[in-house]
Simulated scan of single mutants.
Amino acid sequence: MEVVPLPDVAERFGQPVTRVHQMIRDGHLIALRREGVLGVPTAFLTDTAVVKGLPGTITLLRDAGYQEDEILRWLFTADDTLPGTPIDNLRGDRGREVKRRAQAMGF
């Protein structure tokens, strides 16, 4: 999984890096450390914004009791019934199905 450092995310969005930190605190993004640098998975980003549906999906999974590492694992694990990974489907046109599955995981 490729990761983009937070300053690069801010530049991509045309926002200050403090706004990216706020997005992480608000649960709209998940960041992880790679070689001591905090970054966001490239798959979570479009050219100018967070992938549509990702913040809501993260919230649903957190509400279901998932921790950040479990959320990342779920988003990037292939699911033959989707097909592909949940994050690939969020990036495409199957966000509703991904959110439905994330919500069902809480029950």
Rank of each mutant, 00 (worst) to 15 (best):
Met105Ile: 13
Gly84Glu: 13
His28Pro: 00
Val4Leu: 13
Thr42Phe: 06
Asp26Met: 06
Asp26Val: 05
Gly95Asn: 08
Val9Gln: 05
Ala64His: 08
Gln67Leu: 12
Trp74Ala: 11
Arg12Met: 10
Asn89Trp: 00
Arg73Glu: 15
Pro5Ala: 09
Asp80Ala: 15
Arg62Thr: 14
Gly14His: 05
Gln103Ser: 13
Gly92Val: 03
Ile87Gly: 04
Thr48Leu: 01
Ala10Asp: 02
Phe76Ser: 13
Gly27Arg: 10
Asp79Asn: 15
Gln67Val: 12
Arg100Ile: 06
Gly84Trp: 03
Met1Val: 13
Glu35Ile: 06
Asp26Phe: 00
Glu2Lys: 11
Phe13Gly: 06
Val17His: 04
Pro5Val: 08
Pro5Tyr: 02
Gly95Glu: 10
Ile24Glu: 00
Gln15Leu: 14
Gly53Val: 13
Pro83Leu: 07
Asp63His: 13
Val40Gln: 04
Gln15Val: 15
Gly36Phe: 04
Leu90Met: 08
Gly106Ser: 14
Leu82Phe: 14
Ala43Ser: 13
Pro7Phe: 00
Asp26Thr: 10
Val51Ala: 09
Phe13Trp: 10
Thr77Glu: 14
Pro83Cys: 02
Gly106Met: 01
Trp74Gly: 08
Pro83His: 07
Gly65Thr: 11
Val3His: 01
Arg62Val: 10
Trp74Ile: 09
Arg19His: 05
Lys99Trp: 04
Thr59Gly: 09
Arg94His: 15
Ala43Cys: 06
Ala43Leu: 09
Arg96Trp: 05
Val17Gln: 14
Ala64Glu: 10
Thr48Gln: 11
Phe76Gly: 07
Met23Asp: 06
Thr46Arg: 08
Val98Gln: 09
Asp79Gly: 02
Pro55Thr: 07
Trp74Arg: 07
Gly14Ala: 04
Glu68Thr: 14
Arg73Gly: 06
Lys99Phe: 03
Phe107Ile: 11
Gln67Ala: 13
Gly56Asn: 14
Leu61His: 03
Leu61Ala: 11
Asp63Met: 13
Leu72Ala: 11
